[in-house]
């Protein structure tokens, strides 16, 4: 299987004074002219590592790979609710307004001390929904 081509997707729409994505990026792929400008992503430099998605206080960055297999891509979403979804479980993918879109499989749940309690949840998403799914339904305790 060929390697997944992952890239960050920045859904940061407003000029607010904030730049942790810039300082978090080890590849220098995100730049800002000044603190209150919009971040700009240089796609060629982005490795899709996800560190910006963890650092963004607005949870406004996801990591997208559109070539996981023929039918599916993956989305890696910052997640701050407990309980965490389990790897291998099927959860509901939701859009930007929380509306259910489709079932998605949880491929990976990443939590590290350096993430400061924001975890990354990687889900398998049918290609046609890659631009719609932006979250997952919270797991009921």
């Amino acid at each position: 299987m060929k390697e997944e081509l992952r890239t960050a997707v920045l859904e940061c729409w407003e000029e607010i004074p904030c730049n942790p994505c810039v300082t978090a990026c080890p590849a220098g792929a995100i730049t800002m002219r000044s603190l209150s400008d919009l971040p700009v992503l240089e796609k060629n430099l982005c490795t899709g590592c996800g560190l910006c998605a963890v650092a963004c206080p607005g949870l406004a960055i996801i990591i997208l790979a559109d070539n996981h297999d023929k039918l599916n891509g993956t989305l890696t979403i910052p997640y701050e609710f407990l309980p965490l979804p389990e790897k291998g479980s099927i959860v509901t993918g939701t859009d930007r307004r929380g509306v259910s879109i489709c079932s998605v499989e949880v491929l990976q749940v990443l939590c590290a001390t350096t993430f400061r309690e924001t975890c990354l949840v990687k889900v398998l998403v049918p290609k046609e929904y890659l631009n719609d799914v932006r979250g997952i339904k919270r797991i009921q305790p």
Binding site: P17, C18, N19, P20, A55, P57, R116
Partner: peptide
């Protein structure tokens, strides 16, 4: 308990209580 905006000078990305 959320991560703060700002720059490194303002501890951006660190949660408020920290």
């Amino acid at each position: 308990i959320h991560k703060f905006f700002g720059s490194e000078d303002h501890f951006a990305g660190v949660r408020g209580f920290e």
